[in-house]
Amino acid sequence: MTAVVLVCAVLLAAAAILAVVRAERGPSMLDRTVALDVLTTTLVAFVGLEAAWSRRTDTIPVLVALSLVGFVGSVTIARFASREPPGEGRVRTREEIARDEAAREEAVRAAGGLDGTGPADGVDGGRG
């Protein structure tokens, strides 16, 4: 039994490390979500493996809790990610940030000059 448990632990540790690798590398938020789901499942399997090795029953409520709330994170992130604009996962360069900032200030000035109500109106109404 000890050898089997050792082999299982090594396999589960490898699975957890690979899932963390994908969570670090994943191009989008959803890839990271899937990878973290794999990590959660590996965690459940590891707790189960430990309980099977030492024949203990006091960690089984941990399994119940993890299987209940394990999906909350991915559902939340999926709801959130379905509204993200395309190209969101990209890190902007310094020049792009400066250009966007200049464009935004220009828009504020134009809105303030056109209707005379100041920059508060018209600028942030673009996203409905």
Partner: peptide
Amino acid sequence: LLGGALLAFAAGVGV
């Protein structure tokens, strides 16, 4: 247990 651990490892590789 071995089967479950193998499937978890396969998922890690596939991910």
